[in-house]
Amino acid sequence: MTIKKIQEEIIDEFSMFDDWMQRYEYMIELGKALPLIEEQYKTDDNLIKGCQSKVWVHAELDDDKLVFTADSDAIITKGIIAILVRAFSNQKPQDIIDADVEFIDEIGLKEHLSPTRANGLVSMIKQLKLYAVAYQTQLK
């Protein structure tokens, strides 16, 4: 499935909820279902800089596609990274690099986060794209 299709699914799912309390609860559920990073990858190297809470992301190439696993010590943040992992995992690095992230605005996520969480969200997206750039250069 393409990144765009996955993003459309996420937008549809979030549009089913009337208010932000329900959306936060849904994000927490997504966080609980996140494919967790193995303990050995919970290192400072895998910590996302710019997040108030701790967020670890690990990427590895599997059959020319990047697979992300992640974890966070905060439940909302874990939900945020779960959304991003869902959108970008199992995709080709170039597709991740080229993908836009407007779906974040469309589900209203950025505007409903505290400034520090919104900055963390930007840092998470940046880190996933940096992984894609790093792996893309290895593929060439």
Rank of each mutant, 00 (worst) to 15 (best):
M1Y: 06
M1W: 02
T2R: 07
T2E: 05
I3W: 08
K4N: 13
K4F: 14
K4S: 13
K4I: 12
K5R: 15
K5Y: 15
I6F: 14
E8G: 11
E9D: 12
I11T: 07
I11G: 01
I11R: 00
D12N: 11
D12V: 06
F14K: 00
S15H: 10
M16T: 15
M16W: 13
M16A: 15
F17T: 01
F17A: 00
D18R: 06
D19P: 14
D19R: 12
R23K: 04
R23T: 00
Y24R: 02
E25M: 03
Y26D: 01
M27H: 02
M27E: 00
E29K: 04
E29Q: 03
G31H: 05
G31L: 03
K32T: 12
A33S: 13
L34K: 04
P35F: 04
I37R: 06
E38R: 11
E38M: 14
E39N: 10
E39M: 06
Q40V: 15
Q40L: 09
Q40N: 14
Y41I: 01
K42T: 12
T43H: 02
T43S: 03
T43K: 01
N46W: 00
N46K: 01
N46V: 00
L47N: 12
I48M: 08
K49W: 10
G50K: 05
C51Q: 07
Q52N: 13
Q52M: 15
S53V: 05
K54G: 04
K54S: 06
V55I: 15
V55M: 12
V57A: 07
H58K: 09
H58F: 05
A59G: 10
E60Y: 08
E60M: 08
E60S: 08
L61W: 00
D62A: 09
D63R: 08
D63I: 03
D64H: 04
L66C: 07
L66V: 13
V67Q: 10
D71E: 12
D71I: 07
D71W: 03
S72C: 14
A74G: 10
I75M: 09
I75F: 06
I76S: 10
I76K: 10
T77S: 10
T77W: 03
I80G: 04
I81G: 04
A82R: 01
I83M: 10
L84Y: 07
L84E: 05
V85M: 03
V85K: 01
V85N: 01
R86K: 13
R86A: 04
R86V: 07
R86L: 09
F88G: 05
F88V: 09
F88D: 02
N90R: 11
K92N: 03
Q94F: 02
D95Q: 11
D95F: 06
I97T: 05
D98T: 13
D98I: 10
D100R: 04
E102R: 14
E102S: 09
F103L: 04
I104W: 00
I104P: 00
I104E: 00
E106P: 08
I107D: 00
G108F: 00
K110Y: 13
K110V: 15
E111R: 03
H112Q: 09
H112V: 05
S114H: 06
S114D: 06
T116Y: 08
N119L: 05
G120E: 02
G120A: 07
M124N: 13
Q127R: 14
Q127L: 09
K129V: 07
K129W: 05
L130V: 11
Y131L: 06
A134Y: 14
Y135C: 02
T137N: 06
Q138V: 11
Q138W: 04
L139P: 11
